[in-house]
Structure formats: C-alpha cells, structure tokens
Design a protein around this nucleic acid. Structure first.
Lengths: 337, 337
DNA sequence: TTGTAAGCGTTATCAT
DNA sequence: ATGATAACGCTTACAA
C-alpha cells in the first residue's frame, strides 16, 4: 500500500498524491480531497522510513533514562510525551539501568535510527562522556536533565537541588534537631553533590559546622540506607537528611527495627517525594521535584534545537522544588516549630 | 557518513562494504577487517531507515501500555527489553493513558514506522477493537498481555487472575472473616472480570453466597476505593478484596480515618503487590503478579511470530500469581489461622 | 495545478 | 571475491 497505488487508482502521479497528503498548497482542493478519501479507504499508512530517508531526518526523539520504574523518571517521560507527541515526534525510550555500557548502546541505536534529538539523564555509572561529546559535532541536539554533565554542549534542565536540600535542612533545624546527618549519593553526580552543598550551607548558616562521621556517601538504595543509618546513629545523630526517598525508606525501617521513634528520637527527611512517602507511617517529609515540568521543558528545549538546527547551544534551566512537610520531621513535643 | 564514503576511502564499491559490515560470507576476510576498521575510524553508523526501507521490515517493536508509571507495566517493559534488545530489536513505547483514542494514535504511529510487531495491554477505555483487528490481515504480529481481548488474532499472555483472587479470598475466609466485600474494576476488562469470578468461586465453595451490596464495580483509583469502602462497610462488610492496590490504599486510608482497625475490624486484600503494599502499616496483603516474566514471554512470543512471519496464531499463556500475606489480613485475635 | 525524474542509503540480484 | 545496477517509498526541484 504505497503512494503509487493510490496514484494508479486515481490515474494521477505519485507526486500529486504526495502533495495532497502532505497538505501542500500546490495541489487542487478537489484532488486533495479525492486522494485523502482514497488513502483512507485503501487503509494507507505513509512509510515514515522512506519519508525520513528522503528528508534526511526522522521524526523520532530518543530518550535515555537510568530507570523507567522510578516515579521521577516515568513522570519526566510523561512530561516529554505531552509536548513531543502533539508536535509530531515520537519517543524512543531506553533504559541505561545505571550502566555506562547500556547508555552507549542506547545512544548508538539512536544514531543508527537518525533520531532528530536526544534527551538523557546520565547513568550513575557514567564518568566518561565521549559518547555524548561527539553529538554536537554530528549536529544531533542533546538535552540533559536532572543528572547532567556541565561541559557538554546542549540544553540542561535541572532541579534546584541545592535549595531543596537547604530548605529541608533548615526545616530540620527549626524543628529542633541538633545533630543532623546526611546520607549522600554518589558525589560525582551533580544532583547529589548539590544536595550535599545545600546541607552544608544550612548547617554553616547557623554555625553548626559539620562532622565527618555524620556524612555517608554512595547511599542511594534502600539497603544502603539501612546500613548507613546505624553508623550515623552511633555517631550521635538525632536527624538525617537522605539524598533520596529510597535510602530514607531503608533508614526508617531500620530505625523502627531498633525501637527508636520517628520523629521524636530521630527525624527523617527524604528527597524526591516518591509516592510511598505520603503513605508511610510516619509519613515522610520530602523534597518534591516537578518531574512533569522538567519533562515539558526538556521537550521544548529539544524541539527548539531541532527546529533551529542548532546543536551547539549551552543553556541551563533550574526548576524549583518544594518541601513537603509531613510527620517524620515534626517532633510531637516540639515547641520551636 | 555513508557506506559509499567508506567505499571511496578504500577504493572499493558500496556493495562490498555492505557485505563486509553485515558479516556476509561472500567477502574476503582481509577486506572485511579493513572495512570494519575504517568504519570504526570514520565514526560510521549504519542508517537503519535506509536499511529497513530496502529490507521491507524494521527492527523496531512497538509497545502500548495504559500507564508507564504503574509498577506492573514498567516492570513488564523491563522484561520485554531484556529479551528484545539482545535479539537486535528496539522498543518504541507508547502510553495510551487509558484512552482509546491515544491507543489508536499510537498504533497508527507504529504502522507508519513499519514496526515488526506490536505488544499491547488495552486501555480501560477501549471497547472497539477494529484498530487491532486489521493487524493480522496486514501481517503485523500482535501480542496482548494482561488486559486482552480474546477473539483477536495473536498471542496472549495473562496473569492467573482467577486463581489469584480465589486464593486471596480463601485466605480471608481462613483468617476468620465472615462478610467479604469486593471492590471490583471495570468488568469489560478480562482482568477484573476474572478476579470477580475468583472471588465468587471462593465464596460459593463454602456456601457463603453473595450479596449485591457487597460488590462495587469500576473501583480502580485510590479515590474510588475510599468512596466505595464506606458503602460496603455500611452493608456490613468485615473484609474487602480490592481488585487493585490503589483502591486498597484508598480504602485503608478511609478505614483508618473512620477509626476502625485493620485487620481486627476489617481485613483488606489487594492485587498487584505495588511497592507501597509492603511499606504501609499495616502492610497490605496482596497478590503478586510476575510482571517481568510476563514481559519475557510477551517478547519471546512476538519474536517468534516475527521470525515465522505468522501473525495469525492464537495462543494464550497463563502466568501464575502468588499471594503475599501481610498484616492487613491477619487478625491479632485470630485463632483459625 | 500537475507531471517528470532524480536521489536519500541500503541491500539483493545478477554478472564478472 | 567483487562490481554494477536496480529497487525499497517517498519528496522535491524543475519542467510543462
């Protein structure tokens, strides 16, 4: 079922059919209608591979995320689709599984498919960026979000991680906690680095200073959270700011297991506001990221770059975050709050 | 950067380069190595659009899910990728958002992209199947999973919904609950229909009979769960089997709000074993679906159909489920358990 | 307004 | 083992 079939059926040429179907002005209104009718009737579906081969560009945008089943990432995906689909693009989604190798593999697939642009959030594993560096030279637009590498060409959309952490820790301080620990992530990733800095800034502001034993790094998973919390409790922590909700979850379960009370003995603050944060008891105070908005902006950025055919811009947008205060950080006997 | 560029560079013809790159036997070993080296050095990426246009088929598999951010679906996606990527296919993912129109739109995009096959779980909204009926005639393999329409051509991979419901309700009965309600889903979907039947079968087996007021349909969301639970409590329910964890969640929150105790006053059983089920307090008893396995099987099925070039098979595989018993269904004063 | 024809990058067929 | 050539389905100058 091709354009030529329709042409034969109507006794006209393929070019006219092509024009009729692509809503060109260089075609008689009657012809257009006839063609579109016949196309419909014959169950014609344009072959976009032929079309994009000819046009030299595909209407596909490639997106690489570390994990599809994280609330944050799946919602960014939704945000991207919301913009990208009505604009006539479709999304090819790849999971890197936090692995650099898979990230490279996905990228190569995208290049083979001549995607119009690439949206990515880096795998935690990735510390070599050559696969991404080549893109601007090839004229392939790149948009990074959340986990970004600063000196790569392209747009960057990030959360206000610093401020989220800062606000959260300030809140802990106001709630009366005195020795606030931090379960940090992998510090080579901007997101965790910035959260650490926000934490430090909040402490510094009130002259609290910081204690090495109060900071544990590379704590991202639930299990790691459970392990790490014991260390900081032993070091005398009465509150903990976790760089992610999963580590916060692990910490909370471990704290309960030890018979301590949240928030009275220990306050817990998370980051990401995963759906379970609200449901837990006590409900987990967390920093909400506007995933959908990030997706929207990433989509707008990539579409703009595609339309301007410019892969060499270098912008950064910071999306605000919001502290959601719940039970896990409000002492029942707290007077200062 | 094309095959011809490489050919010129080496002073040979495009055909030889093509053969060298596709590991054909009809090429000298030395030539192959030379070609592959140069391709590497020049940063060549094959143009799959040209290739699939020529070959008449793309290496892309299209997948449509109602929602990407449901634990079940995102894990099915992982399961599909696990099989499909190593086999040299890539996955185009679409969300229908439970809307028939978006489902049709996604399908059309797939057809335009000449996908090699389509994997789908139906939108709850879908009750017209003509967009899917046309596929087998077009030679496009279709695999349905979870939410399936029986009389469509193609493979079907489903959960053992009946048995999951049956086991769950039997467990409620053993736990000593006497008046078991059911918050059912949309009954035109096989999954909810089968769960209802499993519920009825378990009741029937012990001669419990059923009470109209004990069954509320179209309860899928958290809010709907909260609404519906009050109805069945008023009708005297002392336990509720929810067709999904989200409605169970809504029900539990509402029950707590009313000052009733789970599981002592009311037992709650869910379905899907979403991650939050384990975390809630009391932890929610739920039926676990093996999403990853379903994804694996769906992938294997579609690959088989693609390789056999047969879109007209009609098989159904039932994947077993598992009841995960937690606190929400075990009365503290229960002697019968 | 419509037709003609070339070409996008590949691969398959045929010939050498 | 390699080369020449046509074709996949579409778009787009250019010509009519």
């Amino acid at each position: 079922m091709t354009i030529s079939d329709i042409a034969k059926e109507l006794g006209i040429t393929p070019s006219t059919v092509s024009r009729a179907l692509s809503n060109s002005t260089r075609v008689n209104e009657k012809t257009r209608l006839k063609v579109q009718l016949v196309a419909q009737r014959m169950g014609y579906h344009p072959n976009v591979m032929a079309s994009s081969l000819r046009k030299g560009t595909s209407g596909t945008i490639g997106m690489i995320v570390p994990r599809i089943n994280r609330h944050f990432f799946s919602n960014v995906i939704c945000g991207v689709e919301r913009i990208v689909n009505p604009a006539g693009f479709n999304l090819l989604i790849y999971q890197s599984d936090e692995q650099h190798d898979k990230e490279v593999l996905g990228l190569q697939t995208f290049l083979k498919n001549r995607v119009a642009g690439i949206i990515i959030s880096l795998a935690s594993d990735t510390d070599d960026y050559s696969h991404l560096q080549q893109l601007s030279g090839m004229g392939v637009p790149l948009v990074q979000f959340d986990r970004v590498k600063d000196d790569l060409q392209g747009a960057k959309i990030v959360n206000d991680n610093f401020n989220g952490a800062y606000l959260g820790v300030k809140h802990l301080i106001k709630s009366g906690y005195k020795r606030i620990a931090h379960l940090a992530g992998a510090l080579h990733l901007n997101v965790y680095n910035e959260r650490l800095n926000g934490y430090l800034a909040a402490l510094k502001e009130i002259g609290m200073g910081y204690d090495d034993r109060m900071i544990v790094t590379n704590v991202i998973t639930r299990d790691a959270g459970a392990d790490a919390i014991t260390k900081v409790i032993d070091a005398g922590a009465d509150a903990v700011f976790c760089a992610g909700d999963y580590s916060a979850l692990g910490a909370m379960l471990e704290i309960k297991k030890r018979g301590l009370i949240i928030p009275d003995n220990i306050g817990v603050l998370g980051f990401a506001n995963e759906p379970f944060a609200e449901i837990m008891s006590p409900a987990l105070t967390s920093v909400e990221q506007n995933a959908f908005e990030i997706g929207n902006r990433a989509a707008q950025a990539i579409i703009q770059m595609i339309e301007k055919k410019d892969a060499t811009i270098n912008t950064e947008e910071v999306v605000p975050v919001r502290l959601i205060v719940r039970e896990s950080t409000i002492k029942n006997n707290c007077l200062t709050f």
